[in-house]
Nucleic acid binder design. Sequence first.
DNA 1: GCGATAATAAAACGAACGTTCAATTAATTC
DNA 2: GAATTAATTGAACGTTCGTTTTATTATCGC
Lengths: 213, 213
Amino acid sequence: MARTTGSDGERTEAAVREAAVNLIARYGYEAMSMRQLAAEVGVQAAALYRYFPTKEDLLFTLMREHMEGLRAAWQHARPIDADPAEQLAAYVRNHIAFHIERRHATHVSNMELRSLSPDRLTQILRLRTAYEKELRTILREGAEAAIFSIEDTGLTAMALIQMMTGVIVWFRQGERLSVTEVTATYLSMTMRLVGARMDTYSAARPLDLQRTL
Amino acid sequence: MARTTGSDGERTEAAVREAAVNLIARYGYEAMSMRQLAAEVGVQAAALYRYFPTKEDLLFTLMREHMEGLRAAWQHARPIDADPAEQLAAYVRNHIAFHIERRHATHVSNMELRSLSPDRLTQILRLRTAYEKELRTILREGAEAAIFSIEDTGLTAMALIQMMTGVIVWFRQGERLSVTEVTATYLSMTMRLVGARMDTYSAARPLDLQRTL
DNA sequence: GCGATAATAAAACGAACGTTCAATTAATTC
DNA sequence: GAATTAATTGAACGTTCGTTTTATTATCGC
């Protein structure tokens, strides 16, 4: 046997990506074998090498596209000419929505960094740092405008990102809380954490969000 | 050659544990080979099996002792008959101090859970849940006493733990910030996040901490 | 419908893996 | 100082790994 009836390169590659994200998220990059991945796709292991020259190339591609997707989502969601508080709110909403929607890909991008070669690791970290820098900028501008009360901008940014990304560890769709509720609560926690002036965010805003989201 | 001069079981086992924590933290459990571990210790791979029957037993031992150490540290550090705010402060201080001191072991316990067999995974998660439950209790009691202002106790507990544990991702001893400074900032962020009454924590307390820590 | 090309299968490669076993030597006990 | 026990080596086992090679079939352009 060789080429199978109905086979299609694009479809196969997409299936490989999706299966890889799920398998790596579940078992880890090292623990996932190329044969296991091939079986999940319904193909022989050798066929994978038509789309990705090595296993690490596959991992790198998944990570890079995830990070680029995150930046793109934020570029699209960011409000222009908004005050820091509104920008921060948009950042939180976008971050949580993006990560809940791509739980598995996030797991891969966060946990498998050590499996990348040094220069590829650098590339991914560069993307991540650029994204995080945007949060630091918002926090700094808010602090300078005396809208936020922040002791250390860099430290606060890291704390916020860890807190928000952590949602994917425990959050499951269809359980006790909806995405909207979780986002609203995280928004008010964020605003209190940065000492935002208007405590409107902890009371009034969550209702507003029903429409915004 | 066989037994080497000066060889000592206890010393070797301790060396294996330490090397294993470092190697697993750096390369991951699956990526670390028993031969690599043995070489780090200065011994042949077969010698490892005198101390740990399988590779997974080694991983499980490291994790269990880490989690038990965490609970023990908290049992020792927890204040009795203190108000919720002081208890929460003690929890934050203990959590950050413990995790910064054992960065590598924490990485292992958090990232390699998927390499455990189902029932061992359950055991570790049970320990972790018990530890997290103590934070939820503090938060609930503080909320009931109207000392804290919390929308969702469980969600807030998870957010706080993710935020605090995240310190190990970026914090390095001897760089810009000291452990004391980081802890003080995280304490004030925590107190604001839970809406603690006395904003003494965000201003006055950090100075107090120099003595407390 | 025929040639070119895209997509896959099947088999094989050497290397590395976790683990076991028998042999051997150091330390301890009596 | 002989017997016992503790600690380790070195070699080997079968398995699985990522990857390569070669052959074969489906699809598409003309």
